[in-house]
């Protein structure tokens, strides 16, 4: 069977820690010529967060707000522009390439799109065993057993080892993706919307599989989603992102019970079944489009859509401060309240 991670060293230590993370992408050209300069897309702009061992942090936000970029930056799949990313105490940005390649077996990712994330011309057996081959973790003789093990663990028939991805359904493909991520016994896994491309009927299966595996293997997770129910079901803490910044962060129960940021309130209000909302009429509706991360608005990024916007909001950016113990918010409505107290 799969050997569990290392639960002995206490459950409280911070395993992933991000400080002031900024990841900018080169955007479209400013001018006509291929050599004219490019605009910057500030996909992630000053994000700090901690994930403790064995815990799951849920990351929610609208499409394009930079959730995937946070995940990719954590694993150094894109090189962040600035900031620090610590994994088990090591600053990943200071590692040499070789050290980083070796370290990647300890941190893995499950992708959103089960179609694009599997090589159409590789058998699923190869895909699952690839991490083992790359890091030479298993002897050739043991490899088939190990692959069969992994396939059983994620609920696939090991007899299908030699089949190609196009012969599988979306849910099965996602199981392959999970098996691939688990193969090298990682301690930390980023789940980048692993269920959003699946049929609703299958989403529950995959979510349950993830939860079971996480508990069995003592995995630490960053769970990215815009499905609030899934986040609530899986996460210990939740961070809400808007336009590259974290606007609110708290324990799951706390956040769902008393969201403080107008954006979070709107998000919760827009969930199909707001069972947690005491009074549906209270729900705030969002209007207007998300501003572009190339050219974000002045002041608070949410000020263009905020139903409770004040004059200050258009001038200065609110900092992420602890409004209540363990509950951080970036909003003048609340930082003022804190100041008054």
């Amino acid at each position: 069977m799969i050997t569990p991670g290392n639960p002995a060293s206490g459950l409280d230590d911070v395993i992933v820690s991000v400080r002031g993370l900024k990841t900018y992408y080169p955007g479209p050209h400013k001018g006509f010529w291929p050599w004219s300069g490019r605009l910057t897309v500030k996909a992630v702009d000053d994000v700090s967060l901690d994930i403790r061992r064995g815990q799951t942090l849920g990351l929610v936000g609208e499409s394009g707000c930079g959730k995937t970029t946070v995940g990719r930056s954590l694993l150094q799949l894109v090189r962040p522009t600035a900031g620090e990313v610590f994994f088990e105490g090591q600053d990943l940005r200071k590692l040499k390439d070789d050290e980083l390649y070796a370290l990647r077996k300890r941190m893995q990712i499950i992708f959103q799109d089960p179609y694009a994330s599997l090589d159409p011309r590789a058998t699923v057996g190869f895909t699952i065993s690839e991490g083992l081959l790359i890091h030479k973790l298993t002897s050739p003789a043991e490899l088939p057993d190990r692959v069969a093990d992994l396939m059983t663990t994620v609920g696939l028939n090991p007899a299908f080892e030699n089949r190609y991805p196009h012969e599988f359904s979306g849910g099965q493909r996602q199981r392959v993706g999970i098996a691939r991520a688990l193969a090298t016994n990682p301690t930390f896994i980023v789940g980048d919307e692993p269920i959003s491309a699946l049929d609703v009927s299958i989403q529950a299966q995959i979510i349950n599989l993830l939860r079971t595996l996480r508990d069995q293997l003592h995995l630490t997770m960053l769970f990215i989603s815009h499905d609030l129910r899934a986040v609530r079901y899986l996460s210990d803490d939740v961070a809400v992102m808007y336009l590259g910044k974290i606007v609110e962060m708290a324990g799951t129960d706390e956040l769902f019970a008393s969201p403080l940021h107008p954006y979070t309130q709107a998000l919760l209000g827009s969930t199909p079944k707001p069972s947690w909302s005491a009074d549906p009429a209270e729900a705030v509706m969002l209007t207007g489009d998300v501003p572009s991360p190339i050219n974000p608005p002045q002041g608070c990024y949410f000020s263009t859509r905020c139903p409770r916007v004040m004059a200050r909001c258009r001038e200065a950016q609110p900092a992420l401060v602890e409004a209540q113990p363990g509950h951080k918010v970036a909003c003048f409505l609340l930082s003022d309240a804190v100041n008054l107290v």
């Binding site: 990719r72 694993l75 799949l77 390649y101 070796a102 370290l103 990647r104 077996k105 893995q108 990712i109 992708f111 959103q112 799109d113 694009a116 994330s117 599997l118 090589d119 690839e130 991490g131 790359i134 890091h135 993706g177 691939r180 090298t184």
Partner: peptide, 17 residues
């Protein structure tokens, strides 16, 4: 652009692989 390349990169593969 296809994610499976990135997935392989995430596994710790070097460009040659």
């Amino acid at each position: 652009e296809r994610e499976f390349i990135e997935a392989t990169l995430a596994l710790g593969a070097r460009p040659r692989w």
